[in-house]
Amino acid sequence: MTTTSATVSERASGGSAADSSSAAPARPRRRRRVAHAARRWTAFGFAAPLLAYLLVFYAYPLWRNIDLSVHDYNVRAFVQGNAEFVGFDKFVEVFTADSFPTALLNTAVFTLVSIAFQYGIGLALAVFFHSSFRLSGVLRALFLVPWLLPLIVSSSTWAWMLNSDHGIINSVLEAFGGSQINWLTSPDTALTAVIIANIWLGIPFNLVILYAGLQNIPSEVYEAAALDGVTPWQRFWRITFPLLRSVSGITLLLGFIYTLKVVDVIWVMTTGGPGDASLTLSVWSYREAFGTGQPDFSPAAAIGNLLIVIALVFGFVHLRLQRNGDKS
């Protein structure tokens, strides 16, 4: 880092300085050092708004969140600011709660099933659209629509489509001889219903990233394969899929981190219910803090901190993968 900045500042100080330095090495070096320090402060000055912003609007809220989780905050203590320090009691309360195993399992199912389908469907579509046909550009752009809509719009539309009595999905099922499914109100199907909606939401993101990854594969590779007479099936499994490995890793991990955070979709469709049937950790945290008439911030913050830890663990995996990808 320091070496690159030194060389750059040398280059930046222009041709004249470089010329004079060969003639009289001692004085310009000091001048260069002064210029170097000045440039450092300039760089810092341009980054200062961001650094202040991160401190006030990221670090401080996160600190407040940790603070909430180790105190016993109720609404009164919230306003007066005299909550009792309870250490890790709130974490213990969360881990031993009846909802905890359910929420943990639901989170695992929700994230893993969602990203498996989002990735699989996204990859199939990316390969399909990559074979560029008439209108492929326009259709690919249209596929972005679900991703751009406000989540509340998509989730309320899905909620109405999955409505037991008046929803189009049950109407179609019944037309084919099926029976009515209480998608959002039955504990057996609520989680499935929100997963379906969430898969739909995530397909565009996977499609766009994997498509960009496909475009980075040099066409010579395919031309060589065509000369060797490989079948399309072999071409996918032996060439495309292995060459997409690093892009796939990043897509899956970003998908994981996004899915872990999801609150809106589940909250609007089922509020985590019925009971705890579609409760994930994020939704649980939201429900404790804001979802009921009686806000319970301390356990909510404890769940939130747990979520950050999970996200960070996978984030480090992501960075490791990225770094390994850079090396190769």
């Binding site: 880092m1 690159t4 440039r39 760089a43 909430l68 955070k261 994020s282 984030g315």
Partner: peptide, 30 residues
């Protein structure tokens, strides 16, 4: 301008994007 500690800042920004919105919401609320 080759900000000193730029790599760490980049890393912090990546981490910042992983923080769930519900956590930020509670912090901001407080």
């Amino acid at each position: 301008l080759n900000l000193r500690g730029g790599r760490s800042l980049n890393f912090l920004l990546l981490v910042a994007q992983m923080v769930p919105a519900v956590v930020m919401a509670m912090g901001f609320y407080a």
